[in-house]
């Protein structure tokens, strides 16, 4: 049914009359590019400019050039540093678990067993739940004394003292990762399952005739074949995890203390709760730079994978 992409032979034959083709291409691209510029280049330049000022929303007239003052302050600001490191821990932790769990689920769902199709459909539910709903639901399921999680764990005798999941830095971070894993593992599994389903059968048959062991088939045939799908899932998920706001806002709001602050939340608070626009701009600018350092190679890789076929 599903077949491997066989795009190569009718690959884009770029139009030859180059000069003549420039105009329509520009017209076609213009609206999209302008829109994208409005949420990327404009903020980028604005943030860069504003980050050199001490600017408070409440006192637009008191705007003052302070050079690198905001930058000097942010590298000494424990909350900012924590926001950045937490973002890394959160993104890599959550996406790592999603990939492992997603692969396992995809391998099981790929089996030709009764009920798997129904299970696949039900598995889609978490990724369809509006993120703020997911976060708030988790918050109350995890919060003793009324949370069901603690109540039933205790009832089943798994724990004897109620656990305050959101009450310690470590378990709160774990809860945030768990929320993301719950929300998005089905997404990863869905993509990998599509990859598994599109495996050419002759390869597998050839391998089994060769007497290759199952794990060898997995490592030498399945995994390389899945590479493209894994890459897509990792890149899309990592980027989303770096940008996470709704999850942390709804589940922990940075607590306990400031131990689960993520970069997005730090920027939001400085800009829209304290109205320190200049300082927030500096933090946002550094965040953007860090993100582009991490994600540019990934996006490049992804683009190569998409276009090279």
């Amino acid at each position: 049914m599903a077949t491997l992409s066989t795009r190569t032979h009718d690959a884009p034959i770029a139009r030859k009359k180059k000069s003549k083709m420039n105009a329509p291409a520009i017209i076609l691209l213009a609206p999209a590019v302008l829109l994208l510029l409005s949420v990327t280049l404009y903020p980028f330049l604005y943030l860069l400019y504003t980050s050199f000022f001490s600017q408070n929303l409440m006192n637009p007239s008191a705007k003052a050039w302070i050079g690198f003052g905001n930058y000097a302050a942010l590298f000494k600001d424990a909350d900012v540093i924590r926001g950045f490191t937490n973002t890394l821990v959160f993104a890599f932790g959550a996406v790592g678990i999603q990939m492992i769990l997603g692969t396992l689920i995809a391998l099981i769902l790929d089996k030709d067993l009764p009920g798997m199709k129904a299970i696949t459909i039900m598995m889609l539910i978490p990724m369809s739940i509006t993120p703020i709903v997911g976060a708030l639901t988790w918050k109350y399921l995890l919060t003793p004394p009324f949370g069901w999680v603690g109540y039933y764990l205790q009832k089943l005798g798994i724990i004897d003292q109620p656990i305050v999941f959101l009450g310690s830095g470590f378990s709160a971070m774990m809860s945030m990762i768990a929320l993301d894993v719950w929300n998005w593992t089905p997404f990863v599994a869905l993509i990998l399952l599509a990859g598994l389903k599109s495996r050419p059968h002759d390869q597998l048959e050839a391998a089994s005739i060769d007497g290759a062991r199952r794990y060898q088939v997995f490592i030498y045939i399945t995994l390389p074949f899945l590479k493209r799908f894994i890459l897509i899932a990792v890149v899309l998920r990592l980027i989303e995890a770096f940008k996470n706001f709704t999850g942390v806002f709804g589940l922990t709001n940075g607590g306990p203390g400031n131990s689960t602050l993520l970069a997005s939340l730090v920027v939001y608070r400085k800009a829209l709760e304290s109205f320190q626009i200049g300082y927030a701009a500096a933090i946002a600018f550094i965040f953007l730079i860090l993100l582009s350092i991490i994600t540019t190679p990934l996006i490049g890789r992804l683009q190569k994978e998409i276009t090279n076929d």
Binding site: T143, P144, P145, G150, P162, V164, G167, G255, P256
Partner: peptide, 16 residues
């Protein structure tokens, strides 16, 4: 105090 108090706001206190 009930378990979980360290995370309580007025909402959770009211709920408890």
């Amino acid at each position: 105090v009930p378990p979980g108090t360290s995370t309580f706001s007025w909402t959770e206190a009211g709920t408890a």
